[in-house]
Design a binder for these strands. Structure first.
Lengths: 201, 201
DNA sequence: TCATTAACCTAACAAGTGTTAGGCAAATTT
DNA sequence: AAATTTGCCTAACACTTGTTAGGTTAATGA
């Protein structure tokens, strides 16, 4: 019933931007306050610590990704379709909020316990979901017999890397980016025929 | 003629380890000094700032990678061989010093000008070298007509990601890791025959 | 109208930051 | 034997850090 607390999300958005730009540790609560034209102490009316802001950003993004992956698993049955859809969703979520994504991907390490362990659990949950799709694909003989762990890491590192170069004003839109990445990684995943001219032994 | 300054490299090694563990900003010069059982001020006999230590680590790694890529380009002629060799070298260099590599890959953002621009230049140089190999491969019709920029980012993000999970004590050794990654990305790169059963138009 | 809540303020805190100045002792070089 | 270099020290600096206590003001709800 509780509607979106606007001031809170404003602070979180500004924090995410600054955490992305300067890094969590190099960004002071006074930096954040300054961005919002308030005093540093005023932030503590909304949050009980700087780390809480970081944790909210990290867990919010993690939750979004996990939810999207669950939905994908519910809708599609074919492993290739699942991978395509999962990548598309992942790219869309990241492209939708680059700052928060960058914080989620890079600054989560600054979390302390118990946040840290909890975050790692969610992260593993998501990675395992991805891995499962690939494992299924191999089982169904749709994918080549690649090392599933490797494949997941390659796929995820590729899609996550877009935070380093994606610009919303650029020519390439999320959907197109996702397609290109899918094409590329599916090339590495798909069952290859031995008659393929360049196929090595 | 100047031999390796041992104390200096000790300090750099300790710094790299701590920068990796805590992050550059969260790691104080007193943390570094403590690790070496000396006082913080003593570090300034060897370096003129904390940032100098960071820059040495970043540039040393960048230089190693660039040199290795140059050598690869000198030795091999075939695009596929080049990619395989480049990946192998890259993985070997990273695996050889995980701490410095992690700092090189993640903490370079904390550099200030003029270091920052200089670093970015080296980074682009390396990426372009990689990209050139792929472009050549496409031209020679060895590789599929993929987006070279995308391919490079996928390849490099995959190999760089190993700093997150590689353990020297683990079963998989650098050479094997490089092979697996090569197999995977070359699957995405190789020219595919249209007779390939799963090939989607 | 009164009470409550939301949003902010000033002032201060203890602790930690990178860095400098100047000095001392041992090892190395001349 | 003298001079220099190397490696470290103590002490201090000006500044920044996250956070707390306690108070004010305006909006909201009863």
């Amino acid at each position: 019933m509780k509607e979106v607390n606007n001031r809170k999300s404003q602070i979180i958005a500004s924090s995410a931007l600054l955490f992305q730009q300067k890094g969590y540790d190099a960004c002071s609560v006074r930096d954040i306050a300054n961005e919002l034209n308030i005093e540093a102490a005023s932030l503590y009316h909304h949050f009980k610590s700087k780390e809480e802001i970081l944790s909210i950003i990290c867990f919010e993004m993690a939750q979004k990704l996990i939810t999207a992956l669950d939905e994908t698993n519910d809708i599609y049955f074919n492993a290739e379709q699942k991978i395509r859809m999962a990548i598309e969703q992942h790219v869309a979520i990241i492209a939708n909020d680059l700052s928060k994504s960058a914080v989620f991907l890079l600054e989560w390490k600054r979390l302390n316990e118990p946040f840290l362990s909890e975050f790692k659990t969610l992260r593993n949950q998501y990675e395992n979901g991805f891995k499962q799709i690939i494992t299924d694909g191999i089982q169904e003989d749709v994918f080549d017999d690649v090392d599933a762990k490797f494949a997941v890491l390659s796929v995820l590192s590729s899609v996550n890397w877009i935070i380093e170069w994606y610009k919303p004003t650029g020519k390439m839109q999320p959907k197109e980016i996702a397609e290109k990445i899918s094409d590329f990684v599916l090339g590495g995943l798909r069952k290859k025929l031995v008659t393929d001219s360049n196929y090595k032994q």
